[in-house]
Design a binder for these strands. Structure first.
Lengths: 166, 166
DNA sequence: TATTGTTATACTCTATAACTATA
DNA sequence: TATAGTTATAGAGTATAACAATA
């Protein structure tokens, strides 16, 4: 493994550990809230939220998959669940018969709205409460740059995988 | 739900979204690396890392569970896996017969060491590369405060669950 | 009675590969 | 041939509840 064999500074380690621990605890709490308030998993919430923010409340499967989930089949699974609950609809795209357009329903928007106040409350309590406005700006700035960096370098290949030569 | 019905500012939302997206992508890449380099899940890696940092390379099951995993049974499951691979041992605690002391083995340390360089490399490429030293300090500071805040308020009850009164 | 840990069980989620259909 | 999506399948992980043993 010819990677940089350097070790991380205490600050670097500290930032990494804090990031992991905070996001993990936050995610856990949010998932619980979403489950309690709307019987939604986090991925399902993300899908509904994206659709809710989209033009016409619609998006193609592939675009959704790229943004939220890591495999197509995983998205199909979630879409089936959401469709059965009547929170989304699926229909073939008019312009490209291969594509499927997913649309949030009124009921989907209702569930989303029902879940949102509690969602914000958890964020408030857990993430924002101990921070100043300057802290939050800094967080947005720094993590925003990391996010842009990650989006630029295709995430899938970021960790070079051993390709089987057989 | 009598929670604060306020809405988040764009900056607050931005910080939250960036945190979620970054941690999610980072986690995904790290998990892939750990899987490839040492056939470890992230939880398993965390367990080994904690044990490696602990006095005597040992910790009680409960202490491990509190730090890494959310349910006891989940930890038992992971401990069984790691024990079968010879990466840890489990033995009754001398002072309290109810407790089980988990200890990392030499082989466990070897796997840990084998995984670490690649782990650092992923962190370098994905998280640290686009940041200045000041950014990293700021990140550690801000997220460190959030972490302390979360640790202070017991995470389990952070999102108040409906307790069945039956 | 409270705490520690395990077991049984059921469920959610994810990914891989094979497949269909359209571009 | 490449792309969009589904299906079949299998595996990992998680949590809940019941349980046994010790404090």
């Amino acid at each position: 493994m010819p990677d940089s064999p350097r070790s991380l500074s205490p600050t670097e380690l500290g930032a990494y550990f804090a990031l992991i621990e905070v996001s993990s605890l936050l995610r856990h709490a949010v998932e619980q809230q979403l489950r309690d308030a709307g019987d939604l998993s986090y991925v399902q919430f993300q899908l509904l939220a994206r659709l809710g923010d989209s033009d016409q409340g619609s998006q193609r499967m592939t675009d959704l998959a790229d943004g939220v989930v890591y495999s197509r089949s995983g998205l199909t699974y979630q879409a089936q669940t959401l469709e059965q609950r009547g929170l989304i609809t699926r229909a073939p795209a008019p312009d490209d018969e291969r594509s499927v357009v997913v649309t949030i329903t009124d009921e989907g928007r209702r569930v989303l709205a029902g879940v949102f106040p509690g969602h914000v409350a958890v964020l408030d309590q857990m993430l924002l409460e101990p921070l100043t406005a300057a802290d939050i700006e800094s967080l947005e700035d720094v993590l925003g740059r990391v996010r842009d960096h990650l989006r630029a370098a295709p995430p899938r290949s970021a960790a070079p995988r051993r390709r089987r030569t057989v």
